[in-house]
Design a protein around this nucleic acid. Sequence first.
DNA 1: TAGTGGTCTAGACCACCTC
DNA 2: AGGTGGTCTAGACCACTAT
Lengths: 238, 238
Amino acid sequence: MGLKHEMIAQDLAEKIKHQQFLPGDFLPSEKQLCELYGTSRETTRKALNHLAELGLIQKLKGKGSLVLDIQKYTFPISGITSFQELNDSLGLHAQTKVLQQKTGAAPKYFGQTPIEAKKAIFIERLRIIDQQPAVLDQDYLLDPPITVLPKDVAQHSLYAYLENELGLEIDYATKEITVEQVEPAIAEKLALKANEPAVVVRSLSYLADTTPFQLTTSYHRPDKFKFIDFARRKKLNH
Amino acid sequence: MGLKHEMIAQDLAEKIKHQQFLPGDFLPSEKQLCELYGTSRETTRKALNHLAELGLIQKLKGKGSLVLDIQKYTFPISGITSFQELNDSLGLHAQTKVLQQKTGAAPKYFGQTPIEAKKAIFIERLRIIDQQPAVLDQDYLLDPPITVLPKDVAQHSLYAYLENELGLEIDYATKEITVEQVEPAIAEKLALKANEPAVVVRSLSYLADTTPFQLTTSYHRPDKFKFIDFARRKKLNH
DNA sequence: TAGTGGTCTAGACCACCTC
DNA sequence: AGGTGGTCTAGACCACTAT
C-alpha cells in the first residue's frame, strides 16, 4: 500500500532531516518535483502540504517551499505521540518500569464523555529519566477493541503493538492538561515534595472508526514537564 | 476573495454548531455536497478535510462524514488563538487590565532562536476571570513589522487589529509549556501563594512570509490553567 | 450491486514574485 | 515575461460498506 503522496512526503522529510535540504533553502519547485517523482501536480502538492502542516516547510506564494528551522525542537511532540517514539527521536535514553498490569472494569466516564466498553486492561508505568522519576502513566486499554496484551508490550512500545501487531488505526485524541494536587500514593511514586502539584495530562484516544480505545492519565513531575507545540493558525470565522 | 472550499467549510461548520447536523449524524455525501454547492469533488473534499482536521467530523470510508461530539470542549483552544477569541467563544466574560505599554529594545533571543528585530512594543496585560487574576501576558510586538499600536488595541483584540487593520497574515507559532517558580513581581500580580509555581507558556508567532512578529510569555495561575487539545495522529515514519 | 470515500490525473486560470 | 504556488475542474479507477 504505497500512497504516492506519502512516499514523496517521507522522501522529502528524510532529505530535510539528513540536511540534504538546509533551513533557509527552497525545495525544488512543484513542477520539478512532479517530474522527479513522475506524479501530477495535485499529488505533489498533497505531499508538500503535509510537510507544511508538520512545520517542516513553509510555502511562499510566487517563491517556493522554504525549509524551516524548527523541527529539531518541535518535530514529534505535538499530535499523538507515544513515550517510546519521543524517547527514540529525542535520544532521551529513558527507562520504563511497569508497576502494574491487570484486567478489570473500565471507567464509566472520561470527563463528560461516557465510556461504553465495560472491561479494560489497566497498566501503570513509571518513566524514569536520568535516574529520576519523571512521569507516571496510567492507561486503560478498552475491551473491546483490545482483548489481550502480551506481558512485554507495556515495557516497550504499546503503539507499535497496537498498530503493527493488531493492525489498529490510531487516528485522533482529545487531550487536557491541568496542574493539580495528587493523591499521596501518586505523589510518592513521583517523589514529589509535600504539597507539590503535578502536571496532569488526561487523554482519550480513538481509532479511525471512532471507537475509543485508550484512556490515559499521565502525571508529570512539574520540573520535568515540557510540552512543545507547533501550531498553525486555523481560522474558521465568519 | 471568497474561496469556494472555505465557504463550504464555514457553511457546514455553522450548521454543525447550530445543531442542524447533530453528533452521530452523517453529512450529505460528497456527491450531494458537490451538487448542493455547485463545485467539483476535490473542492468539496478540501472543505471536508478542513473540518476533519478541526475535529468537527470524522470521515469513514464507504460510509460518510460523521459529525463528532467533541467540539464543545475542544473547538477553539488548540492552534493559535487569542485570549479575546477564547473569551468570546467560551463566554468567559473575562476582563483585561493593561498594566503597561511602551516601546523599547526587542529581546535578542527566544530560547535558542535569535531575534533580528531591534525594536519592539512591550505590552503587559492581566487577565481577570471571576474577579480573580488568572493570566499575566507579556508581549513583545516586533518592529518591524509592527511599528505603532494605538492605545486601545491592547485592551481589546490584538489579533483582530493585526489581521484586519494592518492586514498581516498570522500563520504559525511555536509554543512551549513549562511549570516554573516565577519572580516575586509576577507572583504578586497573579496573587500566587509563597513558592507556588506558575504555568509558563512561551510562544513565538510568525507571519505567512516567515517573519516573526510576536513573542509572548504567559504566566498562568496553576489552578486556573487548562489546555485542551484535539490532535490527529501524524505518522511520518520510515 | 450500488453508494461511499480515497487517490490520482492532466489540464486550466489566477495572483504573486523576480527580472 | 516567465516562474512560482493557489484554486478549481471533470473525469478516472480503487477499496470499503452496505443490501
